[in-house]
């Protein structure tokens, strides 16, 4: 019976992930006073792209085609590690969050190499900036998870989020609040959302993530877009599980609450995108260093307890 639930959770995450960008876009449209795209726009896009014939640059090699495939494969694997509403997924073991971070690293590695394979100045630029932000985001994210492991005394994702209860929020509220803030900043930077990057920009010079995938088309682009939505889901789920400890005992109501919260996080991202402007490129590392400072403070607080 457990395995059916786990399978159900996994499928729910895999199928609902493309809805998150839709929610973000609807919230942004609301703030701009527009009607906006349909909620399921990304599903249509994916369907359309899968049926298209790709175009490949003559410069590229197999690395270019392998990039999206490795990217999406590592993100789906990461999804199989990700707890859903505090319950373990297929893989739950000691130190699984380290594996998760490195899986994200693998996806980035493949995407960056695919971008460099085109020999384009713009894609190289995007790749360079992506790696730069990763250097600042990864320690912040890692330190945040370490603090969380210390708060709960558990060395695995499922253990951490299973052990988080309402009581933890009562006793360690400052720590958890700092962690949530840090994770949210990392989410914004890693998913190329507004203060760090602008997913809607149409000027190659200002793109970061978009610039890296300029040359991908057809099914490859579909894989990339789907992978991006999975990544958003992944970070969102970490925030949700931190903010929303398991309240009720029943699986169904927990899951429903979790899904609701996921859309809440997406709406939060949409609001942030609507109300603040993009940071100057040289300021983005400062933003990530702030996230690092939040994580570090949380860890120091917890260690001194």
């Amino acid at each position: 019976m457990e395995i059916v639930k786990t399978l159900f959770q996994f499928l729910a995450a895999a199928l609902l992930a493309p809805l998150l960008p839709g929610v973000i876009n609807r919230v942004k449209a609301f703030f701009a006073g527009r009607r906006g795209q349909p909620l399921g726009q990304l599903y249509y896009d994916l369907f359309k792209l899968l049926l298209k014939t790709p175009v490949y640059s003559r410069t590229t090699t197999w690395v270019f085609k392998a990039g999206p495939i490795i990217g999406v494969a590592s993100l789906v694997t990461a999804l199989a590690l990700l707890p859903f509403a505090g319950r373990p997924s297929f893989f739950a073991f000691e130190g699984d969050f380290i594996f998760l971070i490195y899986l994200l690293g693998l996806a980035r590695f493949a995407t960056v190499l695919a971008a460099l394979d085109t020999g384009s100045a713009f894609e190289g630029m995007g790749a360079s900036r992506e790696m730069q932000f990763a250097v600042f985001a990864e320690p912040a994210f890692f330190l945040g998870l370490a603090a969380l492991a210390r708060v709960t005394g558990q060395p695995s994702l499922a253990g951490m989020f299973g052990a988080l209860t309402g009581d933890t929020w009562r006793t360690a509220a400052p720590v958890l609040a700092l962690l949530t803030a840090s994770f949210f900043i990392v989410l914004l930077a890693e998913n190329s959302r507004v203060p760090a990057d602008d997913p809607n920009t149409h000027l190659e010079l200002t793109m970061i993530h978009e610039a890296m995938v300029l040359d991908h088309s057809g099914p490859d682009l579909a894989f990339i877009l789907y992978g991006a939505s999975l990544k958003l889901w992944l970070f969102g789920a970490l925030i949700c599980s931190t903010v929303l400890p398991r309240h009720t005992g029943s699986w169904a109501s927990d899951s429903a609450l979790f899904l609701l919260m996921m859309f809440g996080v997406a709406a939060g991202v949409g609001i942030v995108e609507s109300v603040i402007a993009r940071l100057r490129l040289t300021k983005v590392p400062f933003m990530l260093i702030t996230a690092f400072a939040f994580s570090a403070l949380a860890l120091i607080f917890q260690m001194g307890r």
Partner: peptide, 15 residues
């Protein structure tokens, strides 16, 4: 808890 949060707030203001 509220006082603790205030302390955190003060430290954040230092940063």
């Amino acid at each position: 808890t509220f006082a603790e949060l205030t302390i955190v707030f003060i430290i954040l203001m230092d940063l």
